[in-house]
Design a protein around this nucleic acid. Structure first.
Length: 508
RNA sequence: GCCAGGGUAGCUCAAUGGUGGAGCAGGGCUUUCAUAAGGCCAAGGAUGUGGGUUCGAAUCCCGCCCCUGGUACCA
């Protein structure tokens, strides 16, 4: 049984979850569910990034203790598990003793390699981004993403990470693994970035100014810069360093598991999902940090785009933040998952609007999937036939289940489906399922089992059994994407009822 | 400025040298098993622009216009 390790980035808990978070979680969830269905053992990690200046200030603003503040927000993000029906196995919070100890140990290893040193530092800094800004990045002297915030000038002695040392190894990594970053355009982007040369970056802050972070080992005056701390979650969630083969460390949990999950240099195993704003952190900074700590790189990093709202950027200042809880509550979890997976471009920015959402809902969910299932289930109920329970349990792939193929062309569609998922092309995978739905609708029209029921009941029964099998194949392929809907269909094909309720009631 | 990607039907996109396709929306016809659902048909495009290469260009080359993303750090 293969081990599949998958992680999202950790949302920074300075604001409530929005549609962009939902996109990343749902995409990752599809990967996790499909691998589980294929028989892999899966660790699916997510969580919350809880340190840094912005959070510290926000907590004080709200008159809260930072620890209480981040705990409250972590709970909000964890609630998405139910609202979006997510199957993550790990939810890591960076403000926990285990993670903080891991971040410190990671620091020590980089220091031992000679990659951490102290130097005088002066730079403009955007509190909104938690990132340093150069003049070339500024628009009218302000951060383009947070124009209302005043840039701070930081001038202090900080610890630096020897990023520059890893230019050549990073380029070698990119060259050796053409699918290290998906899509390709993003790999080219990061390659070009690294080719232009790397400069060491600051990885600490003066505790006197910013106490909310992981203490720097052996230096009480500094805390670890939030990025350096947060990225370590990908391995601390696996129990690193305690479960690693670190000498003198007492194993925690199952000792040998870290390298099985994270992988080795020869066979890296960690798949990361991140937004395009995180390209640099995930595919360059984090990889260099891993090299420095003598740990294997990630296996693959998938970069998704952003979601615009009615053609505009989603932003607090624009007042157009879409709350995934609200959408899921109103239209259903699977309706939201459907939109995120199929109605957005695979690798680029997409757009959301209530009008588009409702159009897609009616067209593909109510009229397409829902109606097909209704018509087949009702015919089956009338003809009094049903599929036997599958020999294997639910979750087994369709091709391993006995089917009476009414529509043999499904095979090519399922191939496209598999290829889509392998390339993180959720839209392509979903398109294959909807092509199967359309094909089945056409098949019903051309074979007319509803007429045969009156003239030749036995022939009708054969047709309908085959249709039930097709619906089941569709449901099994739908399972990673729309798990709740898939379950309903699988239940219905084994016990068709004339009271079957529409899966997605049409919106008017 | 530089790097990368893009500009194709009303909308979202496909088609990397061989008669421009699909989905959705809009139009017409039609079935009745189904959620006023389904099916069929037609319409809809000087492929941003100006040149060039070629028997042949959405596709390759050059110029231009526009859009998107990136452009850390040092000076």
């Amino acid at each position: 049984m293969a081990k599949y390790y998958l992680t999202t980035t950790l949302p920074y808990v300075n604001a409530a979850p929005h549609l962009g978070h939902a996109l990343e979680f749902v995409q990752a969830d599809v990967l996790a569910r499909s691998r589980r269905a294929a028989g892999d053992e899966v660790v699916f990690n997510t969580g919350t990034d809880e340190h840094g200046l912005k959070i510290y200030r926000k907590a004080l603003e709200e008159g809260k203790d930072p620890a209480a503040y981040v705990a409250e927000y972590a709970a909000k993000f964890d609630d998405l598990k139910h609202a979006l029906n997510l199957s993550y196995t790990n939810f890591i919070r960076t403000h926990t003793p285990e993670h903080m100890a891991a971040a410190q140990e990671f620091w020590r290893r980089c220091a031992a390699t000679g990659d951490i040193y102290k130097k005088q530092y002066a730079v403009k800094y955007c509190v909104g981004c938690e990132l340093e800004k150069t003049d070339s990045e500024l628009v009218d002297g302000a951060c383009p993403i947070h124009p209302s915030l005043t840039l701070e000038t930081i001038e202090e002695k900080n610890y630096f990470f020897r990023f520059s040392k890893y230019q050549v190894p990073l380029l070698a990594l990119y060259r050796a693994r053409p699918d290290f970053v998906v899509p390709e355009a993003r790999l080219r982007e990061i390659t070009s970035f690294v080719e232009r040369g790397l400069t060491d970056f600051s990885i600490s802050r003066l505790k006197a100014k910013m106490p909310w972070g992981v203490p720097v080992p052996d230096d009480a005056d500094h805390v670890v810069y939030v990025w350096f701390d947060a990225l370590v979650n990908y391995i601390s969630t696996l129990g690193w360093p305690h479960s690693a083969s670190a000498e003198g460390e007492a194993p925690r949990g199952t000792p040998e598991t870290f390298s099985e999950w994270w992988g080795s240099v020869e066979r890296p195993n960690a798949v990361q999902v991140a937004g395009k704003d995180n390209l640099r952190q995930q595919s360059a900074m984090w990889q260099a940090m891993l090299m420095s700590a003598d740990l294997p790189p990630s296996k693959q990093i998938f970069i998704h785009g952003f979601i615009g709202i009615d053609g505009q950027k989603m932003a607090k200042s624009a007042g157009n933040i879409i709350d995934p809880f609200v959408i899921a509550e109103k239209y259903g979890t699977d309706a939201l998952r459907y939109y995120l997976l199929r109605e957005l471009p695979a690798y680029e920015d997409g757009d959301f609007s209530i009008a588009k959402f409702e159009e897609a809902y009616n067209g593909s969910l109510a009229n397409g999937l829902g109606n097909l299932v209704s018509r087949v289930v009702k015919m089956a109920a009338t003809a009094n036939c049903a599929l036997p329970k599958p020999r294997a349990e639910a979750g087994v792939r369709a091709d391993t289940v006995e089917t009476l193929d009414a529509v043999p062309e499904f095979d090519t569609l399922w191939k496209a489906y598999d290829e889509g998922l392998a390339e993180f092309n959720f839209k392509a995978a979903a398109d294959a399922v909807w092509a199967a739905i359309a094909m089945t609708d056409r098949h019903i029209q051309s074979t007319e089992p509803f007429k045969k029921m009156k003239t030749d009941p036995e022939a009708a029964k054969r047709d309908i059994l085959a249709l039930l099998a097709d619906i089941r194949a569709i449901a099994l392929h739908l399972a990673p994407m729309l798990p709740g809907t898939s379950e309903k269909i699988l239940a219905a094909v084994m016990a068709p009822s004339s009271d079957f309720k529409p899966l997605f009631p049409r919106l008017h």
